[in-house]
Design a binder for these strands. Structure first.
Lengths: 202, 202
DNA sequence: TGATTTGACATACGCTTCGTATGTGTCATT
DNA sequence: AATGACACATACGAAGCGTATGTCAAATCA
């Protein structure tokens, strides 16, 4: 069998640990997940974990960073699909709402993450999400589509509203809740528009 | 000395435990707070705690319920002060933002609470907050001030935006962040208005 | 190529903490 | 006055985290 390089092995174990942790945290929650069990499932021991991530919290940070990056990339991509930048912003928000219905993201990013790692707005990954929204808003502001506005503040509130909507959608089994949340989101966002918002612009 | 009734004592120990837990959770966080230390500071032992609250989680639920009720009452009261219902809604949101700057509320209600107790929109106390906002919105909708809107969805998003703004405000030391967040909140909320929002209505 | 060092893990240990099971004293009831 | 219930304290077991230590392969170098 071909011998693999050391760096390869290292990356592989890191990935295995992150994957195992992602599953364990999602299933049992951060506090409920045992590091012994988690590492054993990955075919390793706690030794590997502490060597790579320092402590349990470091492991969560790594998992969160990964999930959050995936979210940002996906939401931004969806936003980019729209020729109209304003529709892109709305779609981006809608994408966040949908993404956050994923139980893994729910539990790890939205619930345990803030409690263990502190305010999300301080995370490097969250800043990526925020930056994407801010960039879009900035462009819209230059084009005159939205009113002159504090871009950072507006972006934070928009993201916050979307994430909260996602929590609501995820907690209820009702199928139409997603649509209700999305509609309300669009209405709220229209408050940023320079022109009087039309009820159904499409 | 006057002998107190049994029920009085009972309520007093409950209150002492909740107060001690409130302080301990705020200072060390839920996970970091030791129940031995917490109860000792109240002049009791863990026995009392498990007798009254079942487990650590039950104690947190009691603390959260208390804090959250205080928030709802205070915010609603502030909203009531305004003759104009629309300004009342905005003031209510602003009040949430300000209230959440309190480190106790920050840590216990906004960070640890959701992680341990689950989605806040399922809490009885949170429903009180929500109901207040919904009532105001409903009235505004009847008066024709805001567009016909899904009241529950709009209320949830508004509350979510306010809470998220509060996290941001609390995390940054910048003094003007509070104003920036409040302004952005008002702009977003104006998306619900039936008429084209004026830039500075007051 | 053989010796040495570095680094990636495994193993072993102690400490803390939670939850429960059991004990004890005091207040109501009869 | 005796009994039962209740409010709490004490004692115990188990689990989990972090650290300190050990080990073996891989990289470096003479």
């Amino acid at each position: 069998m071909a011998r693999r390089r050391r760096a390869e092995m290292l990356e592989e174990t890191r990935a295995k640990l992150i994957d195992a942790a992602r599953a364990a945290f999602a299933e049992k929650g951060y506090a409920g997940a045992s590091m012994d069990e988690l590492t054993a499932r990955a075919g390793l021991t706690r030794g590997a974990l502490y060597h790579h991530f320092g402590d349990k919290r470091g492991l969560l940070a790594a998992v969160v960073d990964r999930l959050d990056s995936e979210m940002a990339a996906r939401a931004h991509e969806i936003g980019q699909r729209h020729a109209n930048a304003w529709e892109g912003l709305l779609a981006e928000g809608g994408a966040y709402i949908e993404l956050a219905r994923d139980p893994e993201i729910q539990r790890i990013v939205l619930l345990d993450g803030p409690a263990v790692l502190g305010d999300p707005s301080q995370w490097p990954s969250q800043n990526r999400c925020l930056l994407a929204t801010m960039t879009t808003l900035e462009a819209l502001s230059r084009e005159g589509v939205v009113k002159p506005v504090d871009v950072e503040a507006a972006a934070r509130l928009i993201n916050g509203a979307a994430l909260n909507a996602a929590l609501w959608v995820a907690a209820s089994d009702d199928a139409d809740v997603l649509d209700r949340a999305t509609d309300a989101f669009r209405q709220l966002a229209s408050g940023l528009l320079a022109l009087a918002p039309s009820t159904s612009p499409s």
